[in-house]
Computed example of a mutant assay.
Amino acid sequence: MDRMRSALPSDFSRMLRFGAVGLLNTALGYTIILTGLWLGLGDIVSNAAGYAAGLTLGFFLNRRWTFTAAGGFRPGTAVRYAITFIVSYSANLGIVIAAMSAGIIENPFVHLVGNCLYTVIFYLGSSRFVFVSGSDDAVAATNAKWPGVAT
């Protein structure tokens, strides 16, 4: 119990930093989307450029500030970050598609629920799979401790 109590302030602080990084990368991404639309790049290109910029900023800020990963850039970490994004975004999209299948169309609450699920999965993936302390090899990521799973 003491171990759990002592870990909570650190985890809470890290969650707050993760949220702050999320706000920054969302602001950057949205700004780029709006700029792309203003330049006439269209929805798809503007959206892709905005997400790419936001994910890139998020990766570097989370790596250095949120999860304080030491060392230089490691491609394996970036690959795990991309995988975590895909899984998180797929869960978000799954909520939206399920709601649409149930006849719930263009409901902001559905997107809020999907975004909350995306954030929780992305945080857990980042903290337990992407920015695993120690090394950058696949074995360290695979053996990362997920809550409730014995390794």
Rank of each mutant, 00 (worst) to 15 (best):
A150Y: 11
D43Q: 05
M100Q: 06
F131Q: 03
A140T: 00
P108V: 07
F109R: 07
P9M: 05
L124E: 05
W146A: 10
L124I: 12
L16Y: 01
I83K: 01
D137S: 12
K145D: 10
G22A: 09
A144C: 08
H111D: 06
N47T: 15
G71Y: 02
A138R: 04
F129G: 12
D136M: 01
N115M: 12
G54D: 00
F131R: 04
V130A: 04
G72T: 02
K145S: 15
L37I: 02
F122H: 08
T151W: 12
G54A: 08
G40P: 00
G22V: 08
T119D: 10
S135E: 02
A138C: 03
F18L: 02
V149M: 11
H111S: 06
L55N: 12
T151L: 13
G36V: 06
D43I: 05
F18G: 00
A82P: 03
M1L: 04
S13N: 15
P75T: 04
T151P: 01
T77W: 01
I33H: 02
I121G: 09
A49N: 04
E106V: 11
V21W: 01
L39T: 08
L34S: 04
V110C: 05
G42D: 03
A102E: 01
A99L: 01
V149L: 13
G72Q: 08
T68W: 09
A140M: 04
K145W: 13
N47K: 13
L55W: 14
D11T: 05
K145A: 15
N143F: 10
R64N: 04
S127Y: 13
G58R: 11
A98F: 07
V45N: 13
D11Q: 11
S13K: 15
A49D: 02
G22I: 11
T142Y: 13
P9S: 10
D136C: 02
T142L: 15
Y30F: 12
G134V: 09
M15W: 11
L23C: 15
G29M: 12
T151M: 09
G50R: 07
R128G: 04
V45S: 15
W65S: 03
A27E: 05
M100W: 03
L117P: 03
F67W: 11
R5A: 11
F122N: 08
I86N: 09
G50Q: 03
L41D: 01
S6F: 06
G114C: 07
I97R: 05
A69W: 06
V45E: 14
I86R: 06
L112G: 14
S46N: 07
T68Q: 14
F67C: 06
Y30I: 12
N47V: 10
A20F: 11
A70F: 08
L34R: 13
L28I: 13
G58K: 14
N47I: 09
K145M: 14
I95S: 06
N115K: 00
D11A: 14
V21S: 04
Y51L: 15
S10A: 13
T66V: 08
G19H: 04
F85S: 00
I44A: 15
T142I: 15
S127V: 09
F12E: 07
G103E: 00
A27F: 11
E106G: 07
G29R: 12
R64S: 12
L8T: 07
G76W: 06
M4D: 03
G114P: 06
A98S: 11
A53V: 10
N62D: 02
